Computed example of a mutant assay.
Amino acid sequence: MKAFVIAVLASALVACASTPTVKTDFEPTANFASYKTYSWAITPQAASPLVQQRIVQGINARLQAKGLRETPQGGDIALAAHIITAQKQTLDTFYSGSGMGGWGWRGGWGGGMAMGSATTQVHTYDVGTLVVDMFDARTKQAVWRGTASGTVPSSPDKVNAAVDAGLDKLFAAYPPGASAAR
C-alpha cells in the first residue's frame, strides 16, 4: 500500500511539472517601438497539422494584441518558429523491507540483516520545445528569441491548453520592457 501511495504522489508531481518553462532573450539595441508589421519566414512544423495551426494562430493573436499587423511578406519583423520534441525517461525506484534487521536500540547497528527488495519503473514521456525567433527584416539581424518547453500531454484538449499556456507566458513580456507575467 505504501509503495502505491508513493507511486501516485510521484505521478502527481510529474503531472505538475507540465507547466511550460519559458526563456526569452533580445537585442538591447533593437528599437521594438519601430516594428509595426511582421511576416512569417518559417512556420513551425508539428506532427499534427492541427497543433501547427493552433501555434501559428496563437502567435498571430498575441502579436496582434501587442499592436503588430501581419503582412504576407515584407514585414518589419521576419518570424521563424521551430518545434523540437524529445523523449525523456524517469526512473522511480521503490524499496520494500528495510534490509536492516535490528537497526538501533535492541538489535545493535545492522545486526540481523534481512532481505529487502527494490522495484524500478521506467516512465517515458515527450518534451516539446517551441522556439520563436524574430529578425529585423531590414538589417537581417536577430532581435528577439523566445523558447517555451514542457511535457507534451497525451490528450488533444490538454495539448491545446499547454500551447495556450506556453504562448501566454512566452509573449507576456513582449516587447522587451513590458511588464512580466504574473
Score class of each variant (00 low, 15 high):
residue 81 A to N: 06
residue 145 R to C: 03
residue 108 G to F: 02
residue 110 G to T: 14
residue 110 G to L: 05
residue 75 G to A: 07
residue 83 I to G: 03
residue 163 V to I: 13
residue 83 I to K: 01
residue 159 V to I: 12
residue 60 N to S: 12
residue 86 A to I: 13
residue 123 H to A: 13
residue 166 G to P: 00
residue 121 Q to K: 14
residue 62 R to E: 04
residue 114 A to S: 13
residue 84 I to Y: 10
residue 134 M to Q: 07
residue 84 I to A: 07
residue 126 D to F: 11
residue 76 D to W: 06
residue 145 R to Y: 02
residue 106 R to Q: 14
residue 95 Y to N: 12
residue 153 P to M: 15
residue 79 L to R: 01
residue 157 D to Q: 15
residue 71 T to R: 02
residue 132 V to W: 00
residue 83 I to M: 11
residue 116 G to W: 11
residue 62 R to K: 15
residue 123 H to F: 13
residue 121 Q to C: 10
residue 78 A to L: 12
residue 158 K to V: 03
residue 109 W to R: 14
residue 109 W to P: 09
residue 69 R to Q: 14
residue 108 G to T: 05
residue 106 R to T: 07
residue 95 Y to G: 10
residue 126 D to R: 10
residue 96 S to E: 14
residue 145 R to K: 13
residue 76 D to Q: 09
residue 163 V to K: 00
residue 105 W to E: 11
residue 76 D to A: 09
residue 124 T to K: 15
residue 152 V to H: 01
residue 79 L to A: 04
residue 116 G to L: 06
residue 164 D to F: 01
residue 150 G to I: 02
residue 147 T to W: 00
residue 130 L to M: 02
residue 87 Q to F: 14
residue 137 A to D: 03
residue 169 K to E: 03
residue 155 S to N: 09
residue 113 M to D: 11
residue 101 G to I: 04
residue 124 T to H: 11
residue 125 Y to L: 10
residue 84 I to P: 06
residue 84 I to N: 08
residue 63 L to H: 00
residue 74 G to D: 07
residue 151 T to S: 06
residue 82 H to E: 15
residue 69 R to I: 09
residue 116 G to Y: 12
residue 72 P to I: 00
residue 129 T to Y: 05
residue 131 V to C: 06
residue 159 V to E: 05
residue 68 L to T: 03
